[in-house]
């Protein structure tokens, strides 16, 4: 059970949060211009990394804010947490 440092509320138990998949996948601005393959890349393709991964999390049972997390999936170490729109930390 993680202890997650919500950037708006502080440290809270994992059960207050919802994981939201890979971070930094931007919705294409002009979807109609994309080929099926390009759209599929956005829609379906997700990484499943063993190691450092960038993820979206939502403080669903708290402030309901979304934020980003850098997590090592091999040992669940949370390396960084930053707000939506902020630049991801360089590794």
């Amino acid at each position: 059970m993680f202890l997650i440092n919500c950037p708006y509320c502080g440290e809270r138990d994992q059960q207050e949060f919802k994981a939201g998949g890979e971070a930094h996948i931007e919705r294409p601005k002009q979807p109609t211009e994309l080929s099926d393959d390009e759209w599929a890349e956005y829609l379906f393709m997700r990484k499943n990394i063993k190691g450092v991964q960038f993820e979206r999390w939502n403080h669903a049972h708290g402030c309901r804010k979304w934020f980003n997390m850098v997590r090592d999936t091999s040992n669940d170490e949370i390396k960084a947490i930053y707000k939506m729109g902020e630049k991801p930390p360089s590794q």
């Binding site: 931007e26 309901r64 979304w66 939506m84 729109g85």
Partner: peptide, 12 residues
Amino acid sequence: GKLEDYLQTEWP
């Protein structure tokens, strides 16, 4: 939840 997601992350 879904609407909040779009508002906060895609269309702030």
